[in-house]
Amino acid sequence: MKRDTFLPLLGVAGLIAVWYLAVWARVVDPVLLPSPDQTFAALVKGMAGGKLGHDFWRTVERTAYATAIAAVIAIPFGVLLGANEKAYRAVEFVIDFFRSTPASAMFPLFLVIFGVGDMTKILVASFGALLVILFNVAYGVMNARKTRLLAAKVMGASRLRVLTDVMLLESLPQTFVGLRNGVSLALVIVVVAEMFIGSTDGLGHRVFEAQQLFAMPDMYAAIFAAGALGYGLNLLFMLVEKRYVHWSGK
């Protein structure tokens, strides 16, 4: 068992080895592909008091706001729609349609309405995340185990108690699926928005600027910072779920 926990490191070591090999064999122009240590040095330098650290936290901030706004709206509405299946069926097509619409296609519209400020980036990202969370919460509530609802009913629970004591808790595992997908999507949209919508900071801006300046180690460092952020956010939600939704998958 112990040995298995180190297995993921094998892939990381393999990737770095291939990278070194590619640099050493000059498979790619050295200007385009700096070595792993150059990149790592840029990452450490950037994160420890450099521009990258500041941009990293700006992206975290925007993603957090976007996800929070989305969750605050989507969870109550998802519960209401899920508890009332007819209402959900009525809006299902609209939700599915906009859930399938690339949020990046909405940038111009949001720019026209909200201007080029921070608000626009956050709101486009919440728009994308909102529909994903809403959809998952509603399905979580709708797919509540019928036996469990009946069990509460036969014990004398009112409709409201069934909703608060059973349906809400039943939907939690699926809600977390929605939150995890939602935060990932919000990050994607925030980073893209930071590249193009008149930005002065954020990881998207850092990647874009480094590319414009041909500062390749900085660009790779920013990409890895973005990757670490995405992975970290996912992990965070997984840990929170494991702690508070301990029955998930059991």
């Binding site: 036996t147 069990a151 004591d165 059973v166 808790l169 939704v245």
Partner: peptide, 9 residues
Amino acid sequence: NYREALFPW
């Protein structure tokens, strides 16, 4: 179905 009748939380 006790598994689905008890509240796992």
